[in-house]
Design a protein around this nucleic acid. Structure first.
Length: 450
RNA sequence: UCCACGGUAGCUCAAUGGCAGAGCAGCGGACUGUUAAUCCGUUGGUUGUAGGUUCAAGUCCUACCCGUGGAGCCA
């Protein structure tokens, strides 16, 4: 192999220091002062005080104040920094100092400033905007400090979920998006062409997860799901991401404990690693610090009794509506676990409760603070005869489920799993008033772009 | 799909049926410690679309289009 013509430089060294790293170095007690740096990024804001400019600069890792003093930089640098439009791509040479007057405790004092690519007049101002305008400019809105924080919180949530499940011995095995038929036969599916036949966009990976669980024991999938419901509320997206663990040998109580562990681990990680971002959103951290296992747990029938006393108009036998969920959790500071639902309102594959054939071993977890249902799951039927009967009772096409029934013919065991809505979870953590900010590019009823 | 509300400057919003307005952004200027900086000046309009009532319509009427919130469905 021929010798490399230039010495190898690692990726990290090529890219140079980031604001995030500089801030950590400079603001540490007894840390260095006046750390020289060359930074590349975007001009996020500017205030001027004559011969002194205060720039809000974003390099991707974070935001920092850059001070450009007229008598400390070449004249062309000062003019460029004074006049270039917001969101221009710029390069700054200077040094980083700890300074209590700067937001975040650090500022970069510029020695040179150059515009790499001047922006056109930027449509998003620091003032208020309506939801429609911001969503039309979602591709640019993502650059704001608030969205920057949310992107990192979502990333941390996804990372922590995977981290916890991996520690518990789970294997991530993703499930298909194109599916030949409706898994549960309940919600409306998006229909699409699959060459010369019809296919549907997945609304759950559960049935496939069950197959994988009988191979590796503990599995999960994490990906987008699609519901063609004309939902028009702050709690619904047309395309959303769902985490679905499935565990062989697990019964209802086992996956309640799994959900508790998963949620508590992720809340802890967020408080530990993303407290600054949560605070940037104005999120009150006190309610998050109170999230501890075990979660309060009631049955469907007990919930019905509580609701009878609250007068929400709930009828026993129905599923809970949004006002019912709010009423059940209004006095709680932790998520509420509800189990043992009527079989009639739940999916065909749920295991009947021992001694109560009209109730099934399903679980819902309702988040506090009005964030609604974040988890739905169940113990699955493992008896082949019962499962076949249920498929017939629900008038589902038996041949489409032949592979699913096979799972009960070859070493069937009790198993359980649940689905957790990523955007609902992120909304709850971040204290959002609408799900649309919890995903980079939300798909809403009348919005398919950007 | 149903219910409620809305559409006026680039943005956020005002305007008893009687001259189309403000703040912010933009543009020009002042300012060496700003924190959504401040101050002075200034550009900017087919009032969602079509029709109707009226001496006169942003305003009232009809239809349509688009959007927002809620219900149901669920994560």
């Amino acid at each position: 192999m021929p010798a490399s013509p230039t010495p190898h430089v690692s990726w990290k060294d090529r890219m140079g220091p980031t604001l995030d790293g500089l801030r950590r170095a400079v603001t540490t007690e007894d840390g260095p002062s006046g750390v020289p740096a060359r930074l590349r990024g975007w001009l996020a804001g500017r205030r001027s005080s004559g011969r002194l400019l205060f720039l809000n600069f974003r390099d991707g890792s974070g935001f920092a104040q850059v001070v450009v003093a007229k008598n400390r930089v070449p004249p062309e640098s000062f003019e460029a920094a004074r006049a270039c439009p917001l969101e221009s791509a710029v390069e700054i040479s200077g040094a980083a100092f700890a300074d209590a007057r700067a937001p975040g405790g650090m500022e970069v004092r510029a020695e040179a400033f150059a515009v790499i690519c001047a922006a056109e007049p930027y449509p998003i101002s620091p003032k208020e905007h309506g939801a429609q305008f911001l969503l039309d400019h979602r591709h640019l809105w993502l650059r704001s400090k608030r969205q920057h924080a949310l992107l990192r919180i979502r990333d941390e949530v996804l990372h922590s979920f995977r981290e916890y499940l991996r520690e518990q011995g789970f294997v991530c095995a993703d499930t298909p998006i194109f599916t030949p038929n409706a898994c549960e036969g309940t919600t409306t599916l998006f229909e699409t062409q699959y060459f010369d036949r019809r296919a549907y966009l997945a609304q759950s990976g559960q049935l496939y997860n069950e197959a994988v669980a009988l191979s590796v024991g503990r599995t999960y999938c994490l990906g987008p799901t699609f519901r063609a419901e004309k939902s028009k509320t702050r709690r619904h997206l047309i395309e959303f991401w769902m985490l679905e663990p499935e565990v062989a040998w697990a019964e209802l109580d086992d996956i309640v404990a799994l959900a508790e562990g998963l949620i508590c681990h992720t809340v802890e990680r967020l408080l530990e690693r993303r407290a600054l971002e949560l605070e940037a959103l104005g999120r009150d951290l006190a309610p998050l610090r109170r999230i501890r296992a075990p979660f309060p747990r009631i049955t469907y029938d007990e919930a019905g009794e509580i609701l009878a006393g609250k007068g929400t108009g709930f009828t026993l036998g129905d599923d809970f509506g949004a006002p019912d969920e709010t009423a059940l959790t209004e006095d709680l500071d932790r998520p509420l676990v509800i189990t043992h639902f009527p079989a009639a309102i739940k999916a065909f594959y749920m295991e009947p409760a021992p001694g109560r054939p009209d109730r099934v071993l399903g679980l819902d977890i309702i988040a506090p603070e009005g964030y609604g249902e974040i988890v739905g799951g169940s113990q699955r039927i493992h008896d082949p005869g019962l499962l076949r009967r249920r498929i017939r009772e629900h008038r589902l096409p038996e041949d489409a489920f032949s592979w699913y029934l096979d799972l009960r013919r070859f070493g069937s065991v009790p198993h359980s799993g649940f689905g957790l809505g990523i955007e609902r979870f992120v909304s709850w953590m971040a204290g959002l008033s609408h799900l649309r900010e919890a995903i980079p590019f939300p798909r809403l009823l009348y919005r398919l772009s950007p």
